[in-house]
Nucleic acid binder design. Structure first.
Lengths: 249, 249
DNA sequence: ATTGCTTTGATAGTAAAACTATTATAATTA
DNA sequence: TAATTATAATAGTTTTACTATCAAAGCAAT
């Protein structure tokens, strides 16, 4: 497990000045994660945050325009960090099926990720993503914010997963939908197991993460597997390719 | 298309007095749907609602404790209404596969449902469910509210779908997870198509609803289909059953 | 050492949101 | 007709979500 001093590339428009670069900024990030986890986004205010970290409301406003943008900043940091973690884990893997396994394991379970940043508690941030994640884009400002690039990290994470799905089955008709669905399901079923167990089959025991992983693996591999028709086309392609290679050589 | 005068059974604890039974109550429901759709949950206030419907803040507070509970009331009304619509459509269907088709078509597309209530615009309410639906249970109050039964309608809708999945394949290991996922996916991909198209494969053209329906059908039937192992067990069961019937007759 | 610049802290203030309370009046019901 | 209940009108409180101002601290260049 490596301890990182790196700075993740989060959209600059999300903040007034880069919080990763100053003491106060890092303090804001660290404490906002703790407080958000403790009281939830709705009850969270900059005043309470200032009290907890022994600073002032006005100082926090010098870093973030609003608590919504602060949440978006944290989510973007998280998505960038997941992309980074996935990148690390995929380096030694060539088989697309194994890549998919690694991705699923990474998006479900923080504990299995291999990098740590000192001023961010990734486990707690993960809990915030599970509870508050969808609030990022379910708002009237979504189109405007999307134009500003506030969801680029999430979309590129999604694209990364979709590409792996297409590696496994180039004819799969819904790669992006499945990728976003895997990401959403991971969060939803962790949450459901803990709060609304009748909406899932995952039991809320010690092994929730492993069970959600199993669920996603089951869904993913059952879906990505080519149908009879698709696999016929794939075999035909394979044949063509082999003939082409023969022609060349 | 029938016009209903029925009153749907929504948890009484969600409101201070039943809004379906008075003129003002129905006016609140009708106008809150219009205003929520127009400005979104975050910007929505009882003051604005009162202005729009030519009443007062205090009057609205006599029906609902807060805008959160009003939203929850509307969502519960919607879930109850979907259950009712599904019930109607399933009456003439006996084949479980056909039931699943009917369910998917009902949860995706309001236009295909067969009942209308005069003081509720179901199409607009559906849009609200798509945008604000997940906010119902992503809050710090979820456990408390769950104890009060505020999610019973959603859970029983989910259970209804899970039962059909088990009719198709009694050995399917994740009936509830798949049911809730179908419900969530329906909303998500309508939303993504409109606002975050890179998170889905559905194009935002005239036929979004039909395409989301196709997506769900693809996912559902590909997943529910027994694997080799499961189908062997099922065939064995079938054999036993036939022998049993023979024994009895 | 002094000047200037930036960051933070301390304080104050505003507008809107999220309620609560009171009283008068209109509509129902007994 | 009296009693009850629902609604409207008004006013007030507390909290949230900011903005503005100014002083102090720190540091960098002259």
């Amino acid at each position: 497990m490596q301890l990182l001093a790196i700075e993740l590339d989060v959209n600059e428009k999300l903040c007034i000045r880069n919080p990763q670069r100053t003491d106060l900024g890092r303090k804001i990030l660290k404490n906002s994660i703790l407080l958000l986890n403790e009281i939830g986004f709705e009850r969270f205010t900059f005043k309470k945050l200032a009290q907890q970290m022994d600073s002032t409301e006005a100082s926090i406003y010098r870093y973030f325009e609003s608590k919504h943008l602060l949440l978006l900043y944290l989510l973007n940091w998280y998505w960038e960090w997941i992309k980074f973690s996935i990148g690390l884990r995929l380096m030694n893997i060539s088989k697309p099926q194994e890549k998919l396994r690694a991705v699923i394991s990474t998006i479900v379970d923080t504990a299995k990720r291999n990098a740590k940043v000192d001023f961010i508690d990734e486990d707690i941030l993960h809990r915030i993503v599970v509870v508050e994640g969808t609030k990022a884009y379910h708002s009237k400002e979504v189109d405007e914010q999307n134009k500003e690039g506030f969801f680029l990290s999430y979309k590129s994470l999604c694209q990364k997963i979709a590409d792996i799905l297409l590696e496994i089955n180039p004819l799969f008709p819904y790669p992006r939908a499945m990728a976003s669905n895997l990401l959403e399901m991971a969060n939803n079923h962790i949450y459901f197991a803990q709060h609304l167990p009748r909406l899932t089959d995952i039991e809320n025991d010690s092994n929730v993460m492993q069970k959600v992983e199993d669920l996603l693996l089951f869904f993913a591999f059952k879906l990505i597997n080519p149908t009879g028709e698709e696999s016929a086309v794939l075999k035909k392609d394979e044949k063509k390719k082999r003939m082409l290679i023969q022609d060349i050589s």
